[in-house]
């Protein structure tokens, strides 16, 4: 029964991916991308990785889809591109080689099974009971700190490119009751995801994406216009996560002598504190990636 589901899911992913690439209409392509992302999220659930599934659905499909949709509106109408057969052949060759290398790597990999045993052995000392959060915020917190730095670098790039701030258009009278339910629910679910990340799938990235979704509803519905002042506050908030994480790293260094090694018994407080700051920060960053970062006019 579940085998039939998996086969259907795989066919669905291939089909939507092919449809996304083959579609002439750009908006249709983006919709195909979002659907493919949701199906991939479902496949992560089937692979037993609900954390990745949550992140894929919220960020990979949801917010990336919104970003792509926003960009597609700003681009010129698509022209039918017909590349010469030689180009297509080379592209197909590269893609096939990459897929072959990936398949070979997956089949020959043997070290992957080593990691779960190490994590479960030390899980009790990590301060949380969800192994994914234990790895992300404790054992490999350094990687996560750098990930936040990468996200911040992306934000700086957006600031340099300085896209026009999207102007909200009137969306009709149904938007208000929709926002009245969705926005508080997003805030509530973000808090829930943040808190439950300590024991079951969830965490700062998923919670931040959820919060950003609520903020985008407010912004696009025209309930909170992205004024320069508000966006400057958003930029400050975007910095808070990186700042708190870096300060926590340094504080842990001072207290224990090792970077990001939390003092005994207090790991959960450190992790939750960092994750709370990250949630707000990630939400601000994702919103600013969507609507652009304000620049002061040149004098």
């Amino acid at each position: 029964m579940s085998l039939a589901f998996d086969i259907l899911l795989t066919i669905g992913i291939f089909f939507t991916a092919a449809a996304t690439l083959g579609m002439r209409d750009r908006v249709g392509s983006v919709v195909g991308f979002v659907v493919a992302g949701l199906l991939v999220a479902l496949s992560w659930v089937r692979l037993g990785a609900p954390d990745v599934a949550l992140a894929e659905a919220a960020i990979g499909a949801g917010l990336t889809g919104a970003l792509l949709l926003r960009s597609s509106g700003r681009l010129k109408p698509v022209e039918r591109l017909i590349s010469p057969p030689s180009h297509r052949f080379i592209v197909a060759l590269i893609a096939a080689a990459f897929a072959g290398a990936l398949a070979w790597a997956v089949y020959t990999a043997s070290g992957a099974a080593l990691y779960p045993a190490l994590v479960s052995e030390r899980l009790a000392s990590s301060g949380v009971t969800n192994p994914v959060t234990a790895v992300l915020l404790n054992f490999r917190a350094w990687d996560t700190l750098l990930e936040i730095a990468v996200l911040f670098a992306a934000l700086i790039l957006v600031r340099i490119v300085a896209p026009a701030v999207p102007q909200p258009v009137a969306l009709g009278e149904l938007m208000l009751p929709f926002a009245r339910i969705i926005v508080p629910m997003c805030a509530f679910l973000a808090g829930h995801l943040l808190w439950q990340g300590a024991s079951v799938p969830g965490g700062a990235f998923q919670a931040g994406a959820m919060l950003a979704g609520g903020l985008l509803v407010l912004m696009l519905g025209g309930f909170a216009a992205p004024t320069p002042r508000l966006m400057s506050w958003g930029a400050m908030l975007a910095l808070v996560g990186l700042a708190v994480f870096s300060l926590a790293a340094l504080g842990a260094e001072v207290l224990t002598g090792t970077l990001l090694l939390y003092p005994d018994g207090t790991a959960k407080f450190w992790i939750l504190g960092i994750e709370a700051a990250l949630t707000l920060s990630i939400a601000a960053m994702l919103c600013l990636l969507f609507c652009g970062v304000p620049r002061r006019p040149l004098k």
Binding site: L171, G172, L174, M175, F178, I181, I182, M185
Partner: peptide, 17 residues
Amino acid sequence: IILVGLSGATMGHLIAR
């Protein structure tokens, strides 16, 4: 159920509009 019903109705309205 609530979320799907809500978003389905709103999105239908927006597309029709």
